[in-house]
Design a protein around this nucleic acid. Sequence first.
DNA 1: TCGTTCTACTAAATCGTTCTAGAAAAACGA
DNA 2: TCGTTTTTCTAGAACGATTTAGTAGAACGA
Lengths: 356, 356
Amino acid sequence: MGNVTLRTVAEQAGVSVSTVSNAYNKPDQLSAQVRDRVLETAKRLGYAGPNPAARSLRSQRAGAIGLLFTEQLSYAFSDPYSVGMLAGLAEVAEEFKTGLLLIPLEHYDPSHPEDAEPSAETMRQSVVDAVVAYCVDADHPARLVAMERGLTVASTIDIDDDRQKYVLIDEAGAAASLGGLLRDLGHQRVGVIVDSRMDDVEPRTTPRVVRPEDEAQLFVDSRIRLDGLRDALGPDVEVIPVFAGHNSTEAGAAAAAYLLDHQNRPTAIACISDVLALGARDAIRQCGLEVGRDVSLTGFDDIPRAAEVGLTTVRQPIHEKGRLLGRMVLDPEFEPRRVVLPTELVVRSSTGPAPH
Amino acid sequence: MGNVTLRTVAEQAGVSVSTVSNAYNKPDQLSAQVRDRVLETAKRLGYAGPNPAARSLRSQRAGAIGLLFTEQLSYAFSDPYSVGMLAGLAEVAEEFKTGLLLIPLEHYDPSHPEDAEPSAETMRQSVVDAVVAYCVDADHPARLVAMERGLTVASTIDIDDDRQKYVLIDEAGAAASLGGLLRDLGHQRVGVIVDSRMDDVEPRTTPRVVRPEDEAQLFVDSRIRLDGLRDALGPDVEVIPVFAGHNSTEAGAAAAAYLLDHQNRPTAIACISDVLALGARDAIRQCGLEVGRDVSLTGFDDIPRAAEVGLTTVRQPIHEKGRLLGRMVLDPEFEPRRVVLPTELVVRSSTGPAPH
DNA sequence: TCGTTCTACTAAATCGTTCTAGAAAAACGA
DNA sequence: TCGTTTTTCTAGAACGATTTAGTAGAACGA
């Protein structure tokens, strides 16, 4: 039981191993008569079809694509934005009858390169044909292993490497439109809330100002967006970046409270994601301040809830992003190696002129 | 390139194949000296580590668990409730350094058993050690294939089969508490909104009353909840079950609008999920009616948004459900084969006494 | 009738590992 | 010194499929 193989079936059915294999994979290569006999024998023996590992080995294809996700896998599901991307990706996977393997990553700190092995371990083990690297740092060991294995890698951040493919959003344009909006509204002091790695400062929910030497601790897309905001706001505007523990409303609220407690309170708070901004919104109201009048607030992504609470944000075609990533690694007809998706500034009630 | 194997490395390093294998898997079986030499040679040749398919074949373990999901994979991400389960499951997978493979299923209609093959195909192909069957029908071919393959199967619905494991919620108790509440409030006509399969009536968003012969078209958990509600409401209460196209706010709204348009409007609407209820809430308000006074409304699951809008519902420990499912298939120390999780009735403002 | 093509099937090589059993060398105990 | 144990490495057999190249016989055309 459980030890039934092609050979067992072949012997019992009185045919060769190849014939049994063909019965499953190339039905037109044998007579209907023999095929029926084979399948019937298989059923009788409780044979569950060709062993997928053996098949993968021999045919050199896995029937699955891998998804490399920022450090903590369960966080993938905590942000509606990531979930939207996943849904798009899953849609394409489904269309191609391909599995979608979520690959958990160990945290990797570039300042300790000797830890590369454990961080890449799961990527080594994964039976996949291609990989989507979602918000994974350029030098993460898992990414490097995927490349070494010769897998197609599609990335959501721009790495200057011809061997990879890219689906990007116009981060610069997005940051510029947000920054421009705040600048034009006359804000002179802008707090920026960014999420940080899990194993950051202890306790993790304690916010604190991001020092220049901390920048390596930022998630790669947070870094890009922060830089973009700084550029757009220009040198005359004071930017106060603050770490939130991670990408959640709770952490966003704590970080905003910290900023509002500042001796010289910022007149606007820009958050690196809508989820953080929703938390910040709660904190601002808790302080008895009015969002959009006393303090302006912006998010990023345009998740459904943003519209409901009137949050100014930047819309990304997230579902489309997931679909394109999937198509890029699965559809041989899909040629572009690099797609940049447009973003759209959505101004709502959470932003207004800077108070004096 | 790409054709570097253990043997290539062994030859170049002047050791046996087994030794190279040990260098990766059993570092204590060889001298540090030789190990370093081997790994260095591997690096030089661009060897990305043992081929996972071959490893899986030989060692008979995949390093991944499969998730069988109701028909449409991308729907897994559209309901915060499913997402919560996924997060819990992913958490455990991560802990065990195991991948999580989302397996897309073809739709299977029990009345056409000859279609079993295609519906089970992806399950045949998947390289996994165990399977979590989330809301998958008892007789779905993919589930049967998983069993045939001798995989551990953990299920979220109760099937009378000793070979499987179960994490259930107390559906009967949950339905009874909701039904009891509505009955005690004096409601005599209750609409029930249930989600239906993708390939149901065309166009899919058109709601319609569920006829007895349609019941096979219902998702398995919808059926259980509907039956539970009927039981709890008792024979004197008229129950009008209505199909929504699928589990989304839009479909919920359409189904509610259909019910309210009914010649003899129900005084209460019970939805099979919070997502549907949120849509129904919109529709009720659109009709100029007040939720909780003119029409009572209940959901199921207690997603975060339910608290925000005052929706009466039943809370399930969904995150815990995911975690238990994971533990059940991954942790050898975990013995229970059957866990029933408690539910809790959460009464909020969306329910009130039946109007006369 | 003979050569050719087509159909239905098979033998054996191969995919790239891990694992078992065992050998050679080194270390050890008395 | 000699037998025993330990350490370090290796040969070769699985693991369970797919694929290539080929064979026997039927069908075909002239």
